[in-house]
Design a protein around this nucleic acid. Sequence first.
DNA 1: TTTCGTATAGGGGAAAACCCCTATTTTTTT
DNA 2: AAAAAAATAGGGGTTTTCCCCTATACGAAA
Lengths: 211, 211
Amino acid sequence: MIDVLIADDHQLLIDGIKTTLDDVPDINIVAEANNGLQVLKILQSKKIDVIIMDINMPQMDGLDCTKAVCKKYPDTKVVALSQFDEKRFVKKMVKNGASGYLLKDSGKDEIVAAIRKINSGEKYFCERLSINIINRELSTLDSKSLFPQLTDREIEVLKLICKEFSSPEIADSLFISDKTVENHRANLIAKAGVKNTAGLVRWAVENDFVD
Amino acid sequence: MIDVLIADDHQLLIDGIKTTLDDVPDINIVAEANNGLQVLKILQSKKIDVIIMDINMPQMDGLDCTKAVCKKYPDTKVVALSQFDEKRFVKKMVKNGASGYLLKDSGKDEIVAAIRKINSGEKYFCERLSINIINRELSTLDSKSLFPQLTDREIEVLKLICKEFSSPEIADSLFISDKTVENHRANLIAKAGVKNTAGLVRWAVENDFVD
DNA sequence: TTTCGTATAGGGGAAAACCCCTATTTTTTT
DNA sequence: AAAAAAATAGGGGTTTTCCCCTATACGAAA
């Protein structure tokens, strides 16, 4: 039996999925939430196998919630549910730990297949993702190897570099030495596999570390 | 009477639009295509007023096709049709000469309004484009003034900067002095309205000067 | 014909980036 | 408790970027 939580701010959609999955014997909808905070609250008391997670939610969205869930409850799998088949969202969700991606107009078979696959530890990406090219990329690689693992501080520095801050300016705004910033910058350049700050910024923009 | 061509690789969507526009007296669907090459072929024999152009198509996509059409047939207007309301796509299509942008889930009224406006030489941008801010930018400005006018040489230098070339390296590969490259770099930074090379690269990526 | 824009190139100097290192403290993981 | 990873910071140097200028040559536009 797979215990599933549905998180979406549209109750209609939750009801729709519940109805759809009503007669599936091995899938059990045991909880629902309308935003990311509710998800975290439910996880404190209930053990959940798979979360069907909308990306756009108030208070705490699916991106941040997925990140939090995958960190605190690594056994709980997340499948993203969205109306957009946008490269950025897909990549971002996978980066945050999601095991799969479904579009909101997916059929019953697809949803059921996704839940089963993901519960068994596999990945599942909706066939109709416009960028099918990245399917293979994403399903073979996991969130750790997809991107070099940047530390929180490195991401912080990277974002400031992309906002045209110089090393001394970053040092001032983070209350650290400019030598430390230069170290972070060098590590970022190495991790991104680029040659200089220009390459780093391009890599950051193309891999959604900005905005 | 407005003669319209629909270009989309999903026949279902073409049929949908045809049905929708069936009873509009002044709009006539006179042709359809499933990719960009077919569009160019049709234009050789038929005079078209407005092309409803999908962005994602096999063989030749909407971006390249729009560029080709606007160059060869300046009287034929193009309205982009896409499921993505992504800044990048919108900007790219406008840059390539499109007169408007519609989302695929637009209503009949919106499609009809767009075709009429665009046929009369105006611009039309779907209200629900998530980045409504740029609506005013785009509808008042044309494709030439949308971006600061970079010279050919500047674009050449810019692309090399984005490819992680340093000024001396660029100088070597273009057979000019590194001082000249530095001048181009400074002019680029000024034209882009950014502070340093990091900002320039980000601006270049976001405005599709790379790749 | 004169002006304007573009491409070219230089001088000179300050700031930043880049590249080696080493090293300590703190946090996380095992 | 020990080991690993992350964050901190420094020394010392080279290269590049950045910011002032000036200046010439050329072609196109006014």
